[in-house]
Design a protein around this nucleic acid. Structure first.
Length: 908
RNA sequence: GCCGGAGUGGCGGAAUUGGCAGACGCGCACGACUCAAAAUCGUGUUCCCUACGGGAAUGAGGGUUCGAUUCCCUCCUUCGGCACCA
C-alpha cells in the first residue's frame, strides 16, 4: 500500500515540476511527509518554514470579491483564544456545592520529551467529553500532570550525558507548551509532577502507611532482574513469552535478593470483584486472568521419614490416582530426602535447571525432564508408597513447589509417567465406559492409556468414593470435588484451598531517579520508617547516577548515613528507590490539592471531587497501573485514609494508533508523525476533530496523514457559512429581521435536522462514540448549506441552527467555535460557558415516514405515509402500491408484516 | 493450548441493536471556475450482467426468521493477553 502511494506521489511530482507552477502541492506534501516520517533523534524540526506551508494551504481571498472574508486562519485564532482563556482562568475548577461534580481524568503522560499521538489520541476526545459535561451543568475537574520519575528518564539522561532532573524538567516545559497547544481545558493550577519534592514526600508517606499496616515488607526472594536496566522488576513488568523487561525488551534473569514488597495479594479476592464500577469487560478479563484464581484443596502427604509435604491440587477427586510426586528442584525438602546414591545425579540436574533460563526450558519443546530422589512418600488417602521425583516443570513460585502427579488425568503428568515408565492408575472413568472397554485406548486404564483423560465421569479405584459422579466444574461447584474435600477435612489430611497466580508487588528499584524508600536500618532495631515529621527523604542531586550495577544512592559518600528512629544510634538508609508505578497510584489524589502541605490531599477537596467519575487511557495498563491503583486505594481505605471501594467509577480505553507501517510508533522505527507539524498546517481544532472522526476510539488503527484534509475542509466550510452569508454580510447569520425567502417546509426541515443532530450528538458524547459526533455535524452542515441555498438565512430557524451548531462544535473544536460565537455571531463570551442546548422533541419529530416495502424479503418499493397513520392504513397503502400489485400478479399475500413502523414485509 | 477483541467498497468507518447495507469522510473520475494550476463548488464512485432493468455481496459454510452485518452452530484469518499455574 505504501509503495503504491509513493509511486503516485512521485508521478505527481514529475508532472508538476515540468510546469513552472508557483505552488507545487505534491512537492510540498512529499516534503512535509519526509519531515514527519523521517528518523529524528531530536524534536523534529520543519524542513519547510511553517509559515510557507500554512500560506500554501490557505485559500487566498479573491481580489475580485473583497467582501468575502473566507480565510480561515487557525494559527491566528487559536493562539488568541488560548491566551484569553488562560488570562480569564476560564478552566479553573473550584469546589461549588451548588453544582454536581464530574471528575474527568486522563492518564498522566510520561515525561518522554515530545507529545505524540499516543497522547493526543486519548486526550483530545477526553477533553471534548469533559467540555461536554461542563456545558451540561457539571462542575468539571479535568486535571493534568506528569509522571516524571523512572527508568526511561534516567536512561535517556545517561545517553545524553545530562542530569535526569534537568532532562525531565526540560521535557515537562516542552510538553506543557504542547499540551496547551491542543486547546485542552486542563486546570493548570492543579498540575502535579511526581518528581517534585512536595509530591514524593507524600509518596514516601504513603509507603510508611502501608508499612505501618503490615502491607509493606522486606523479604529475600528469587526476583526478576533486568540486566540492561540494572534493576529488579515487578512481576507485572516482565512481559511476553520471552519474559522480557517491559521497558527495554531485554530478557530478565532470576536473582536472589532482599527486596521491598507490597502485600497486594491480600486483596486478590477483592480485586476480582468489580462491583459498582463501569469498566470494560476486556480490562476486567485481563485483570481476572492476571490474578489467576484457582479453587481446589491443599493436602498433606508425608515422606517415609514423617516430614509433611503440602501440595495444592484443583483435582482432589483424583487423589487416588496419584502414583508419584514431583518437587521443584528448589524445594526446601529436596536435600533432606535425596538418598546418597542419587545425590550426584540430582545435584547435576539442579545446577542445570538453575542455569537454564525460562526461555531455554521452553525451547526443549515441552519435553519433560526429571530425576528420582530415591525417596518415597505416603499417599494419605490410600497409604500407597509412591516415589518422589524432582522436575523443572514444577515451579517453586506457584502453589507449594510440590505436586502430586496423577498421570491418568493430567497431560503433563501423563507425559512424564510415559517417559519414565511410572505407573498410571485410572480413577475417573468416562460416562458409559466400562471394564469391557478397557482395551479401548481412549477409555482404558493402566499402561494401555494413550492420553490423560480430563473429562467428566465416575470415580473408580477410589475407595470409599467409587461410583461418585464428577463433572468438569471447578471447586465446590463440582459435587465430586465437594464430597472429597469434606472427607479430607473430616480425616484431617487436607482442606479446601485457593491459589493465585498473582504475586506481591515488588517495588524496590536499584536506580537513582525515583522516590527514595523512606526506611532506615539499625543493627539493633532492624528496619524502621523515617519519622513522618522528617519527611521527605530528599533525593540528592550530587550523585553519580550513571549505571554501575549498584544502586547509585549507595555510592553517595554521606547520604545513606542516618540515625535509628528508635535508639538514635548510627543507622543506614535504604538506598533503593520506589517503582514509579507507586507514584502514579495516587496522582489523582494529588491533583485535588497539589500545594497542600498538611497531608497528601486536602480532605475538603477529596470529599467534593472523589471518586473519579470517568477515567480514560490505554488498555496496556490493565494489569499494571490499573491494578496497582485499585490495590493502593483498597489498602488506603483499610488504613482509613480514603473512602469507598474503588477509585475510578467508569473506565474507557482508547485503542492504539499505529504508524503507517502497521508498527507501534517509535522514534527508533522512524514512523513517528509529529502532531506539532500537523497543528502548524491545519490547526489544533482540525487535528482534534480528525482524531475523533477517523477511528472507532476504542479500536484505534493505522495513522493516515491524508485524512486530516477532510476535517480541515469541514471546519473551513463551517467558517465559510458563518462568515459569508450572502449580501448582507455577517449580520445575516443572526438577523431575524431580514426578508426570509425560505418556505415553511425548508424551515421545518432545518429545525428537524438540527434537533435530530443534537439528540444524536448528546447521546454519542455519553457513549464515547466520537466518530459519529463529527460525522453528524458534517451532515448537519451539509443540510445547512442546502437550507441557506433555499433562503433560510435570516430566519429565526437559521439563527437557532447557527447557535446550536456552535455549541455542539465547541467541545470538539474549541477555538473556531469561540471565534465564530463571540466575534461573528456577537454572542456573549464564552461559548464554553454556555449551557448545552435542549432537544426539542417536537421539532425533531418527522411529519411523514418512508417505509420500504419488501416482497419475499426483497425491497421492491417505498411508500410514504403520515406519522400518525394507523397500522391498517400503512398496510393498505403498501398493498395499493403499483409495484406491489405487479409482483402479486393477482394473488393474495400470505402475510403482511409491519415491523416497528419501519418496514412492510409482504410474503407471497 | 487457554482467555478476550476484531473481520463490512481502493481506504478510515456508519447502520437507531433483528428491519432500506455502505451514512460521513479520504481517495479516485468527470464537470464548472481559471490563460493555466492550486483552492473552491457540482456530479459520480461496492461488484457483476444483455444495464431507466435485474442479480450478487458485510471472512467462509450451515441454521433460526417474513427478514440476519446483528442471534445460534462449525470453521478461517487477524490483533492482544496468559501460558509446564498443578
Amino acid at each position: 500500500m505504501a509503495k503504491t502511494k509513493k509511486s503516485k506521489a512521485a508521478k505527481k511530482k514529475a508532472v508538476t515540476t515540468k510546469k513552472t507552477a508557483p505552488v507545487k502541492k505534491a512537492d510540498m506534501e512529499s516534503t512535509v511527509k519526509k519531515a514527519i516520517v523521517s528518523i529524528q533523534p531530536e524534536p523534529i524540526k520543519a524542513i519547510v518554514p511553517v509559515e510557507a506551508m500554512v500560506k500554501a494551504i490557505q485559500p487566498v481571498a479573491n481580489a475580485d470579491k473583497p467582501a468575502r472574508d473566507i480565510s480561515y486562519d487557525p494559527q491566528a485564532i487559536e493562539k488568541k483564544w488560548r491566551e484569553k482563556w488562560e488570562e480569564d482562568k476560564l478552566y479553573r475548577s473550584v469546589i461549588d456545592e451548588s453544582r454536581p461534580k464530574h471528575y474527568a481524568l486522563t492518564m498522566l503522560p510520561y515525561t518522554s520529551g515530545d507529545l505524540h499521538f499516543g497522547h493526543w489520541y486519548p486526550m483530545a476526545p477526553s477533553d471534548a467529553r469533559a467540555r461536554f459535561k461542563r456545558m451540561n451543568g457539571y462542575n468539571v475537574l479535568f486535571p493534568i500532570g506528569f509522571d516524571a520519575f523512572g527508568l526511561p528518564a534516567e536512561n535517556a539522561a545517561i545517553k545524553r550525558g545530562i542530569h535526569p532532573k534537568e532532562w525531565t524538567y526540560k521535557n515537562i516545559d516542552n510538553m506543557r507548551r504542547q499540551l496547551k497547544g491542543m486547546g485542552t481545558m486542563f486546570d493548570w493550577e492543579r498540575e502535579a509532577i511526581s518528581a517534585d519534592i512536595e509530591y514524593y514526600k507524600w509518596t514516601q508517606w504513603f509507603f510508611i502507611q502501608l508499612f505501618k499496616h503490615g502491607l509493606a515488607y522486606r523479604k529475600m526472594a528469587a526476583v526478576d532482574w533486568c540486566p540492561k536496566d540494572n534493576t529488579t522488576l515487578a512481576r507485572e513488568q516482565v512481559v511476553g513469552e520471552n519474559r522480557v523487561c517491559e521497558r527495554c525488551g531485554t530478557p530478565v534473569i532470576k536473582k536472589d535478593l532482599e527486596q521491598w514488597f507490597f502485600r497486594s495479594t491480600k486483596y486478590a479476592d477483592e480485586l476480582l470483584r468489580f462491583d459498582g464500577i463501569d469498566w470494560p469487560e476486556r480490562v476486567k478479563t485481563l485483570q481476572t486472568n492476571w490474578i489467576g484464581r484457582s479453587e481446589g484443596a491443599s493436602v498433606i502427604f508425608k515422606t517415609e521419614a514423617g516430614d509433611d509435604i503440602e501440595i495444592f491440587t484443583t483435582r482432589p477427586d483424583t487423589l487416588w490416582g496419584a502414583t508419584f510426586m514431583v518437587f521443584s528442584p528448589e524445594h526446601p525438602l529436596v536435600d533432606k530426602i535425596t538418598t546418597p546414591e542419587q545425590k550426584s545425579v540430582l545435584d547435576e540436574y539442579k545446577i542445570q535447571a538453575a542455569r537454564e533460563s525460562d526461555i531455554e526450558r521452553e525451547a526443549v519443546g515441552g519435553e519433560k525432564t526429571g530425576v528420582f530422589t530415591g525417596s518415597y512418600a505416603i499417599n494419605p488417602v490410600n497409604n500407597e508408597r509412591i516415589p518422589i521425583w524432582i522436575a523443572d516443570y514444577v515451579l517453586m513460585s506457584y502453589g507449594t513447589g510440590a505436586i502430586m502427579a496423577v498421570p491418568a488425568h493430567d497431560e503433563r503428568d501423563f507425559a512424564f509417567a510415559k517417559k519414565y515408565a511410572l505407573p498410571i492408575v485410572e480413577v475417573i472413568r468416562p460416562d458409559g465406559g466400562s471394564e469391557a472397554e478397557e482395551d479401548d485406548p481412549s477409555t482404558g486404564s493402566g499402561q494401555r492409556m494413550q492420553a490423560a483423560y480430563i473429562g467428566p465421569g465416575v470415580m473408580v479405584n477410589s475407595d470409599p468414593f467409587n461410583g461418585t459422579k464428577v463433572n468438569t466444574e471447578k471447586g465446590r461447584k463440582n459435587p465430586g470435588i465437594a464430597a472429597v474435600i469434606d472427607w479430607l477435612e473430616a480425616q484431617g489430611i487436607g482442606k479446601e484451598s485457593v491459589n493465585y497466580r498473582y504475586r506481591d508487588w515488588l517495588i524496590s528499584r536499584q536506580r537513582y531517579w525515583g522516590a527514595p524508600i523512606p526506611m532506615v536500618y539499625c543493627k539493633t532495631h532492624g528496619w524502621n520508617p523515617v519519622p513522618e515529621d522528617q519527611l521527605p527523604v530528599t533525593l540528592p542531586d550530587d550523585v553519580e547516577w550513571k549505571p554501575t550495577g549498584e544502586s547509585p544512592l549507595k555510592l553517595h559518600p554521606s547520604w545513606k548515613n542516618a540515625t535509628c528512629p528508635i535508639c538514635g544510634e548510627p543507622a543506614v538508609r535504604e538506598t533503593d528507590t520506589m517503582d514509579t508505578f507507586m507514584c502514579s497510584s495516587w496522582y489523582h489524589l494529588r491533583y485535588l490539592s497539589p500545594d497542600y502541605d498538611k497531608g497528601p490531599f486536602d480532605e475538603a477537596e477529596y470529599n467534593y471531587w472523589m471518586p473519579v467519575d470517568t477515567y480514560t487511557g490505554g488498555i496496556e495498563h490493565a494489569t499494571m497501573h490499573l491494578l496497582y491503583t485499585r490495590f493502593f486505594h483498597k489498602a488506603m481505605r483499610d488504613a482509613g485514609i480514603v473512602e469507598g471501594n474503588e477509585p475510578m467509577m467508569q473506565l474507557r480505553n482508547q485503542g492504539i494508533i499505529l504508524g503507517e507501517d502497521n508498527e507501534k510508533m517509535s522514534k527508533s522505527r522512524g514512523n513517528v508523525v509529529a502532531p506539532d507539524e500537523l497543528v502548524a498546517m491545519y490547526g489544533a481544532d482540525a487535528l482534534r476533530a480528525y482524531l475523533m472522526f477517523a477511528y472507532r476510539w476504542q479500536e484505534g488503527g493505522l495513522w493516515n496523514s491524508n485524512g486530516i484534509e477532510g476535517t480541515f475542509r469541514w471546519l473551513r466550510r463551517v467558517w465559510t457559512i458563518f462568515t459569508e452569508s450572502g449580501d448582507s454580510s455577517r449580520r445575516i447569520a443572526i438577523a431575524s429581521d431580514s426578508p426570509a425567502t425560505a418556505s415553511d417546509e425548508t424551515k421545518r426541515t432545518l429545525r428537524r435536522r438540527v434537533h435530530q443532530t443534537l439528540r444524536r450528538v448528546s447521546g454519542d458524547f455519553e457513549q464515547f462514540e466520537f466518530n459519529t459526533i463529527v460525522s453528524s455535524l458534517m451532515e448537519l452542515l451539509n443540510e445547512m448549506y442546502k437550507a441557506r441555498e433555499a433562503g433560510a438565512a435570516g430566519t429565526p430557524e437559521w439563527k437557532e441552527a447557527t447557535e446550536i451548531y456552535l455549541k455542539m462544535l465547541a467541545p470538539i473544536a474549541p477555538h473556531i467555535a469561540e471565534e465564530l460565537w463571540t466575534n461573528q455571531l456577537g454572542r456573549p463570551y464564552s461559548v464554553h460557558q454556555q449551557p448545552w442546548p435542549k432537544v426539542d422533541e417536537a421539532a425533531a419529530k418527522e411529519d411523514v415516514i418512508e417505509l420500504p416495502v419488501q416482497i419475499n424479503g426483497r425491497v421492491r418499493d417505498r411508500i410514504t405515509v403520515p406519522v400518525e397513520a394507523s397500522e391498517e392504513e400503512i398496510r393498505s397503502a403498501a398493498l395499493a402500491s403499483e409495484v406491489v400489485q405487479k409482483y402479486l400478479e393477482g394473488r393474495q399475500p400470505k402475510k403482511v408484516i409491519l415491523a416497528h413502523r419501519r418496514l412492510v414485509s409482504i410474503v407471497v
